[in-house]
Design a protein around this nucleic acid. Sequence first.
DNA 1: CACACATATTAGTAAATACTAATATGATAA
DNA 2: TTATCATATTAGTATTTACTAATATGTGTG
Lengths: 108, 108
Amino acid sequence: MKQHTANFDTKMKLIHGFSNKTRMQILECIKEEEKTVSQIIEETKGNQSNISQHLACLKGCGIIVGRNEGKYMYYSLRNQHIRDLLSMFDVVLEDVENDVACCDRHMD
Amino acid sequence: MKQHTANFDTKMKLIHGFSNKTRMQILECIKEEEKTVSQIIEETKGNQSNISQHLACLKGCGIIVGRNEGKYMYYSLRNQHIRDLLSMFDVVLEDVENDVACCDRHMD
DNA sequence: CACACATATTAGTAAATACTAATATGATAA
DNA sequence: TTATCATATTAGTATTTACTAATATGTGTG
C-alpha cells in the first residue's frame, strides 16, 4: 500500500514528459515514423540545444527511444501504447474543447 | 491546416492539468466519486489555499466539474473519458516502469 | 445580526522548468 | 589528421509554476 509512492513518482515523470509544447511538437513530429534529430529540429523549427534536451527528457520519461546509426540518432515513440495515449488526448480534447477554450473567461 | 494552433494550445492546457503531483493526487482522490473540497484537503493532506487553486486549475483545464450544494462544493471528474485517460496512464506506466525507474542512471 | 464554517482569491516568494549561447564529443570524409 | 557535420552537454538566465499566509466571500445557524 506504500509501494504506491514509487509508482506514483514514475507516473508523474511519465506525464511530465507530455506537458510541454515543444515536447508535444516533437512527439507529433515522430508519431508516425522515426526521425533524426536534424529532421526534428527542422520540422519543429526548434533550437538545436533545446530540442536535444527535450529529446533527452522524453527518453528519460520512457516515452521515446533512440537508435544510433552512424552519426545520426533516430528517435521514435517507444511503442504503440504511447501512440494510443497521444490519440487518447485528442479524443478527450474533443469533448473538452468547447468548454476549455472559453475558460479564461471563467477564471474571473 | 492552421486551425491546428488553437487546438494545440487547448491540448497543452488539458495535459498540463495532469502534470502536477498535487493535481494528480486530487484526481485519484475523486476518481470514483465526487468529494467536497474539505474531504479532498483532508485525504490529500493538502493546504486549503493550494488545493483550492489546483481545483480551479483542473476545472479550467476541463478535467473536473464542480457542483455547488449549500456551503459545499463537490468536485468530480468531468466524464468517463477522463477516467479512461487516467487508467491509460497506468497502462502505459506498466510497460514503461522498469526502464523509467532506472533512468536517472541513464542520464549520465 | 454576529459567528462559524467552507471555499475562493490575492499577493508575495520559492522552486521548478525552459531557453539560449557556448562548448564538447563523436563520426565520417577529404 | 584535420575539417565538418550531427548531436550532446554545460552554465547562466529567463520564465513559469507551485506554495504559503493573509484576507475575502458566501452560506447556514444561534
